[in-house]
Amino acid sequence: MKKTPILLMLLALLILAAFSIYPVFNAFRLSLFDMGLLQREVTFVGLKNYSVLLSDPLFYNSLKATLLFAGGSVAIQYFLGLFLATLLSTQDLKGIRFFRSSFILPYTLSELVVALVWLHIYDSNFGVLNGFVNALGVPVQRWLFDWAMPAVIVANCWWGSTFSMLLLESAMKGIPAELYEAAKVDGASGLQQFFKITLPSLHYVSMLNLIMITLLTINAFGIVFVLTFGGPQNATDVIGMYMWRNAFRFMDLGYGATLAVVIFIFNIIITLLYIRVFGKETLKGSVSK
């Protein structure tokens, strides 16, 4: 009896241990070495990579860029997702399947295709966005130059908001209709219902959703990679992008792993922060329900 849960989880734990957890330990180990794919010798250097990192201006720059990119993306994705979910929850909505299908479409494309499509839209000389802007009588813009960070955030949100929408919409479905009916009898307006009933009910899902999209955004770099390659002047050089350049352009695995470890630590800190903000009980509730 006591061993049953472990047995039930055994396969899942084994797979996760081998293909998700072991790589992290490996990254820790690699970060202590000076090694590269195109290097013959592997030398143990201890914490040298970390001291290099701490005096690397590009690293600090990438932190700043990541903060902007992830902050902007997460805020927009969550609130846009929430807003769309609210719209879709309108009673007796006609054409709901059409709307929902349209919103999910971006999610069926791979990150790099998404980026290439937006690259064409943003093109300052031949892009369709400037075509619209021009038709409206506004001067054409250099989107990926003057507006680089907002541009990558919009493309990222176009792709990612769907996830939040789906999660939140289906959670809203779980809220008992009687609650709203009762509130209506009490004379609560739609807005009041939203803040008094909907939002509190979404507490747990919101936390999980925020954690997930934050981590996904910090770890992702494909859109930045194609749209700006970290430029102009490193404005969008997010940490994932910087890690890729070190690990696979310069083939510097040691330093790439060091950056990966740092990202990992940030992810943990951010997750703990979210749990702190939402209250520990939120998580406990999910375990001992």
């Binding site: 790589p23 981590l215 770890n219 994932g240 890690m243 890729w244 792993a257 950056l259 990966a260």
Partner: peptide, 26 residues
């Protein structure tokens, strides 16, 4: 139990690019 649940969700925290080389080795 809660540690385990967190741990499982926590595997999402691993940057995909970072695990490429170890995964290749595995």
């Amino acid at each position: 139990q809660s540690v385990l649940l967190l741990g499982i969700l926590g595997t999402q925290m691993i940057p995909g690019m970072a695990s490429l080389v170890p995964l290749f080795d595995i």
